[in-house]
């Protein structure tokens, strides 16, 4: 497979766009830090998987998304929702299980949706979102709405059989789908060296004739470029495309994971040398696109949004007890 062939491409991002990407990444980072704090205070319970470190992936993909595109991912989903335009208040209130949450408190961290923003979850079964996402692509093709499905999964999910069932159908039927493998190097606590035969996950579509490429997932610029290429390929009727985003999560798999399977040095090195937000900040300053004061203003701004979301998530009431019995079936 000509896995590294580059076709299409994105126009150079404008200064305004670059600043927007910075802000979006920062919003995810601060939102997730706050979620971690609320978890620590016992306000968020159960499973909670933070996206800290991986921000450039979804921001870069969404930067070049088309107006009809849809998005689906696994349970590490807070960042995807924020960048798809969902209200941080509604997302945080779902994390605290309140009536003001996107699922009115009935879904939780892993199960949120917004039909309006074409965000289709939020799925808790590793790999299950991949055929579901192929189905979103099928619907784009069936309705000819010009959209592409952005289907995210982790490096752990690519060992699930249904991922290959989806690759096969998506390629066979030339479905407009971009499969985004967010390779954060660990399937929960098992490193990719220990779980994947062959470390080049972007080649996992070779047998199905799906082009793939590895991408520096810590660089928003690299992600954006590759995303534009992949989306153009899928949108033009040539079928699916695989992007392997090499990224890193700084936190454990979920809140109760002490992450003893990797060294402190490894985490520190990624944080200090490859952080997507720090890199972007340096670029903005070096290119003279923003001043220190401008950055501080964004900081304040983002902090205010997150604070407001956190406050809403604590003042919004728990769902009414009658909600236990609603939304099971639609009355025909």
């Amino acid at each position: 497979m000509a896995s590294k062939k580059k076709v299409g491409g994105a126009a150079e991002p404008t200064p305004k766009e670059l600043i927007r990407y910075y802000r979006e990444m920062l919003l995810i980072r601060r939102f997730e830090e706050k979620a971690g704090q609320l978890y620590g205070m016992g306000l968020i319970n159960g499973f909670c998987h933070l996206y800290i470190g991986q921000e450039a992936v979804v921001v870069g993909m969404q930067a070049v998304a088309g107006p009809a595109d849809s998005c689906i991912t696994s349970y590490r989903d807070h960042g995807h929702m924020l960048v798809c335009g969902m209200d941080p208040k509604g997302v945080m209130a779902e994390l605290t299980g309140r009536a003001g949450g996107y699922s009115r408190g009935k879904g939780g961290s892993m199960h949120m949706f917004s039909k309006e923003k074409r965000f289709y979850g939020g799925h808790g079964i590793v790999g299950a979102q991949v055929p579901l996402g192929a189905g979103l692509g099928f619907a784009h093709k069936y309705t000819k709405d010009g959209g592409v499905a952005h289907v995210y999964c982790g490096d752990g999910a690519v060992n699930q059989g249904q991922v290959y069932e989806s690759f096969n159908m998506a390629s066979l039927w030339k479905l407009p789908v971009v499969f985004v493998i967010e390779n954060n190097k660990y399937a929960m606590g098992t490193s990719s060296a220990r779980h994947a035969a062959g470390q080049e996950l972007y080649k996992r579509g070779d047998a199905y004739g799906i082009p793939g490429e590895p991408v520096n997932g810590m660089s928003i610029i690299a992600v954006r470029e590759a995303a534009a290429r992949a989306l153009e390929h899928a949108r033009s009727g040539q079928g699916p495309y695989i992007l392997e985003m090499n990224t890193y999560r700084y936190r454990g798999h979920s809140m109760s994971d002490p992450a003893k399977y990797r060294s402190k040095e490894e985490v520190t090195r990624m944080r200090e040398q490859h952080d997507p937000i720090d890199q972007m900040k340096e670029k903005l300053l070096a290119d003279g696109l923003i001043t220190e004061d401008g950055l501080k203003e964004i900081d304040r701004d983002v902090k205010a949004v997150v604070t407001e979301a956190a406050e809403f998530s604590q003042t919004s009431p728990e769902p009414d007890v009658s909600e236990l019995w609603t939304d099971i079936l639609i009355e025909a």
Binding site: S70, I72, Y120, A128, V130, P131, L132, G133, A134, G135, L136, G137, F138, A139, H140, Y142, T143, A149, G161, Q162, E165, S166, N168, M169
Partner: peptide, 13 residues
């Protein structure tokens, strides 16, 4: 598993 999942996704859409 693949086509049932694909169909559910089309149903969501």
């Amino acid at each position: 598993m693949g086509f049932a999942g694909l169909a559910c996704g089309a149903g969501y859409a």
